[in-house]
């Protein structure tokens, strides 16, 4: 194997490692921008993973699996939305419960699928562009979910910061009382945001069980939902920084494997901690401007909205 193709292989695995984080984080970013803290990302993700796998096995089509994963993620998020937005339950506690529920539920549903070989989603080569040496296979011969993740980052950026819809979402997250008195339906906006987050988490789960390792393994999300949550905060709720953070985390976690394999004399524990350290440090440096950080943080994050009497 030539050096170049070696590098290419490493970069491909980095994309694979980063995509699920990016998908889940970009969804949660929108949720939190609307003022809702949904800690159930991990739970929604794993339910998406098992349902995506199950639907793919049943129909033979990974695309139907993807749709099923999104629907199940949305279903989980609706449960969260009903509890926190209608019944005003505590968002932190409810989010934790959603994660525990998702882990348990996926274990139960997935028991029948353990050990079954899955059907992998094939990459889609974009004509002409995909034959460009080196960057062609990297950027233009990917599966639909990788393309979707890039599309989502761009779309979320434009919607949040350039469109009226995004202005309303940010307004609801910044001051729900004022948004209400201006006549916006805080609950409705938050429901839609929470559902978007659920769909993205479902996608992230599908990526794991259909592409990353095309099979069902219990607990296969392995804490990625939590990392996605942390990325959103450290990225100070900015889409581009979420992209940087997700890829940085993915890159360092892959590179440290290679470093370990090549026999660098550092303790493996330290190496395994590297992705976390590197990501936190870089994102803190990016978001060090205190006034901007304050402006980016949704002021109503996690606060239940109780309309005026």
């Amino acid at each position: 194997m030539s050096d170049l193709s070696m590098i290419e292989a490493v970069l491909l695995t980095i994309i694979t490692a980063s995509t699920p984080l990016l998908l889940a984080a970009i969804g949660e970013l929108v949720v939190e921008r609307s003022g809702v803290l949904n800690l159930g990302v991990e739970g929604m993700m794993i339910v998406g993973a098992v349902m995506g796998f199950a639907a793919t096995q049943a129909t033979g089509s990974p695309y139907i699996g993807i749709v099923a994963a999104m629907i199940s993620g949305v279903a989980m998020s609706l449960l969260f939305g009903f509890l926190t937005l209608n019944l005003m339950s505590n968002q932190v506690a409810t989010g934790l419960a959603l994660t525990i529920l998702g882990l348990g539920l996926s274990g139960m549903v997935g028991e029948a699928f353990i050990g079954q070989p899955g059907i992998s989603l094939k990459p889609i080569a974009i004509p002409v562009l995909s034959v460009i040496p080196f960057i062609g296979p990297l950027l233009f011969n990917q599966d639909v979910l990788v393309y979707a993740s890039y599309g989502l980052v761009i779309a979320v950026y434009f919607v949040l910061f350039k469109s009226r819809t995004g202005l309303i979402i940010r307004a609801v997250g910044d001051n729900h009382g004022s948004a209400h008195s201006l006549g916006y339906s805080v609950i409705q906006v938050r429901y839609l945001a929470v559902m978007f987050g659920g769909a993205c988490s479902g996608l992230a789960g599908a990526y794991l069980s259909l592409i990353y390792t095309p099979q069902w393994v219990e607990g296969m999300t392995a804490g990625r939902g939590w990392i996605a949550l942390a990325l959103v905060v450290f990225a100070s709720w900015r889409p581009a920084r979420v992209l940087i953070g997700a890829y940085l985390f993915g890159a360092v976690s892959i590179l440290q494997f290679h470093a370990q394999a090549s026999g660098i004399g550092l303790p493996t524990q330290l190496m395994s901690a590297l992705p976390y350290l590197a990501t936190i440090i870089v994102l803190i440096i990016i978001s060090r401007n205190k006034t901007l950080a304050k402006v980016n943080t949704p002021a109503c994050l996690g606060k239940p909205f109780v309309p005026d009497r």
Binding site: R164, L167, I168, R170, A171, D174, N175, G177, S178, A179, S181, L182, G183, Y184, K294, V295, N296, T297, P298, A299
Partner: peptide, 29 residues
């Protein structure tokens, strides 16, 4: 929204502004 459509505007005692948004964004809302 209905009140505004009729032609009623209100300036609140405790401002109903969004601190994280710009002046024009606040007004656009």
């Amino acid at each position: 929204a209905t009140a505004r459509k009729l032609g009623v505007g209100m300036v609140f005692q405790h401002f109903s502004l969004f601190e994280a948004l710009s002046v024009v964004e606040n007004i656009a809302l």
